[in-house]
Design a protein around this nucleic acid. Sequence first.
DNA 1: AGCATTTGACCTCG
DNA 2: CGAGGTCAAATGCT
Length: 277
Amino acid sequence: MTLDTPAAVVLELMTMGQQSAAHLGDLLRAASPAAASPHQELAAEILRCCGRVIDALRAAAAASGHKRKAAAEYQDAAAGGGASPPPPPPPPGPPLKRRARGGEATREVTSGTTVDGFIWRKYGQKDINGHKHPRLYYRCAHKDQGCDATRRVQRTREQPAAYEIAYYGDHTCRGAATAWQQGAPAPAVVDFGSNSWGSADTTSGGSPASVPLGGWWSPSASSEVGFEAHAAAHEWRDTAAAAPDPVMEFLDGAFGWESVLEDRFDLGGLHGIATFQ
DNA sequence: AGCATTTGACCTCG
DNA sequence: CGAGGTCAAATGCT
């Protein structure tokens, strides 16, 4: 597999993450062979999560070859270079209460609800016939700036851990998309919180931000679950400096793999995925 | 207090 | 008329 697509890069990263988690588990076992520590469980959890993401990515890649073009175009938009040619505007249309069926612009299947560089605000949720999980409706948080982009998120029936995301409309708020690439807090939105390993379901009411991984997660300003592991990682590293041991040394080294991305890609918006900001 | 999310009601389409 | 999409008041969170 080449690394020509963002999905390929994510796949490679997740594979590396999986290997790193496995290595970490080994180190933890070596450090405290007696009983299974919470740390070991955590490493195992990471391992399982990576596995699920990898499975979902592979399934999506196999099933959606023809969708790649549209997805890539969307990535370009998310990258917000501003140099992208004027995208064919979707039907602006009169004030429609309801869009024409099948009039979607882009459709993706992904293991999370994606980090696409935009801040989405949930405006609705609906139980759909034949679907166990509700469909979620989001619109761009910059609607007040005239951005009419919306997206519809539906968990797939085949793979509960995967989401089918349909994008509608076009972002006219490119500035927002580029701002976070330049150091501003990223609107990271990896919605692992509602994946299969949590019983979390947004139908249950309350915050969708389940926190399955022992508090690494915290709700972000975004409408979805923000993944702030990167910040947490730095905290770990501070701790590691105080108490160096094989595990911490490993962790220190492991965080270098985000550089893989820079080697292959001028990531633009995807960098948010790489660093989990 | 301000903002984001939830959720039931309403609207439109097929 | 039912299903799907959106609105907006209520609610919760920071």
